[in-house]
Design a protein around this nucleic acid. Structure first.
Lengths: 111, 111
DNA sequence: TTTACACATTCATATATTATAATGTATGTG
DNA sequence: CACATACATTATAATATATGAATGTGTAAA
């Protein structure tokens, strides 16, 4: 009697399935739940840009920015493209495009 | 030349302001970026329920559930109401109601 | 090919999060 | 009152995550 989808709650699918989705969702949320990464993603939502520009935007050191970018890259959230000396990053995951406006509405609306 | 809203990016508000919003947003995201907490919030989105029910839903120990609930309570995300022996939790933050359907759409849609 | 720049990676350390176990408190029941 | 149930809190240990310093790599220009 563990993952019984018998009664008790109104979910129309079983608990394991919810748990899987929850896991995916939290992985995603964790990767954007970081001040620097979120700012990077907000910036990238407006179009690709270089590491240097992100470095200035965040007033952070290059290594720190690069590290966050690496994480986002590994998770398939952003893409990197080299052009000359610079590397340009852009969004690779549509879910970011979906959630950014929602967050913007919640936290950046001046009313 | 720190919080210069001079040029360079297309943001129509300055960097400090973005950083503040980003901070608020990431605090919020962090509090929902946890498998157990997210499942709790999904459940509460359907209506209030007791700790025992949550305990069963998550197949987690009471202490663990209580701890996550405490965190959500402290952050003002949920409310608790005592009725007899049981304590019933419910959502106290509209932003949860806003974001849950978005996440559901992203991660739970069976297509 | 040397130098400089733009960026990535590695590693050590600090910090935050989480699970577990033990204990405490409030409520209801016989 | 004695006891069971429902939940909270605390301390602790394990683990994950972030930060910083140093070093490595690829590219371009001289």
């Amino acid at each position: 009697m563990n993952s019984a989808s018998s009664t008790a709650f109104k979910f129309d699918f079983d608990v394991d399935e919810i748990a899987d989705s929850a896991r995916e969702a939290t992985d995603f949320l964790k990767s954007i739940a970081h001040e620097g990464r979120l700012m990077i993603l907000c910036r990238l939502a407006e179009g690709e840009c270089s590491v240097t520009e992100l470095e200035e935007l965040l007033s952070a050191r290059q290594a720190a920015v690069s590290q966050q970018l690496a994480r986002l890259r590994l998770e398939g959230i952003v893409d990197a493209r080299r052009e000359g000396k610079s590397v340009y990053y852009s969004l690779a995951d549509n879910r970011i495009q979906t959630i950014i406006p929602v967050l913007y509405e919640m936290f950046c609306k001046t009313d």
